[in-house]
Design a protein around this nucleic acid. Structure first.
Length: 210
DNA sequence: TGCCAGGCCCTCTTTAGGGCCTT
């Protein structure tokens, strides 16, 4: 079984260190190439959403005021993810909010791998005109998932992108699912380049089979 | 009033700077 938890946060800004908080979280569980689970919730962190962010996401202060407390939502989200490896588009951003919101709720994040479709796409599709999530969806002609900058729509889109990446890794490089180790090792080996990581992976597999 | 983060990656680089990407 090859499961991934594709996560997306909507937030009040770019950094928890500036006091920014999450306003919505969505998680899509992908098993092989199929979506087998979904979690989505607005959350009330007790901070005001700037007008620009309200306009960007469509999430208003009134909407989060009626939402459950952030700590309660994060506890439920953590239970939903369990120990399944996480994936996000620009994972550094979502990982910061994942860890920060869990900590604010008095929880410790379970140490699981956190792969990044942005970094993978930059390596695998260097010819793409843009590596924004929506632009990559257009580039690959992925199905529409709903309003951009809403957590579930973006998580579904990132999940479709992950499936496409895995399929291309299989067709281009002969990497057969499951490929947890490959996706994570690729993320960790970005500085050395995709080809180098793939070659190392294939050589390791060959040595193990010998 | 103006600015605010962080990580990756490219290049006119590596003793650095700037663009991209996330909200």
């Amino acid at each position: 079984m090859t499961r991934w938890a594709v996560i997306d946060f909507e937030t009040t800004g770019l950094s928890p260190l500036n006091g920014d908080r999450a306003t919505e979280v969505a998680i899509v569980i992908v098993d092989e190439d199929a979506v087998v689970g979904r979690f989505q919730s607005l959350m009330n962190a007790g901070v005001a959403i700037p007008p620009f962010i309200e306009s960007l996401t469509g999430i208003s202060n009134a909407m989060v005021a009626a939402a459950p407390p952030a700590a309660e939502v994060m506890a439920e989200a953590a239970r939903f993810v369990g120990t399944v490896p996480l994936v996000a588009h620009n994972a550094a951003f979502d990982r910061r909010f994942w860890n920060a919101e869990l900590a604010l709720g008095g929880q410790r994040a379970t140490p699981v791998p956190f792969a990044c479709t942005l970094l993978l796409s930059r390596r695998i599709y260097p010819q793409a005109p843009s590596h924004k999530l929506g632009a990559l969806a257009d580039y690959h002609r992925l199905p529409a998932t709903g309003r951009a900058h809403r957590a579930l729509a973006d998580a579904e889109m990132a999940a479709a992108l992950l499936v496409r990446i895995r399929r291309d890794l299989q067709s281009r490089y002969g990497i057969e699912p499951p490929c947890h180790d490959l996706l994570v090792s690729l993320q960790e080996a970005q500085r050395r380049g995709l080809e180098t990581a793939l070659h190392r992976h294939l050589q390791a597999r060959a040595r193990a089979a010998a």
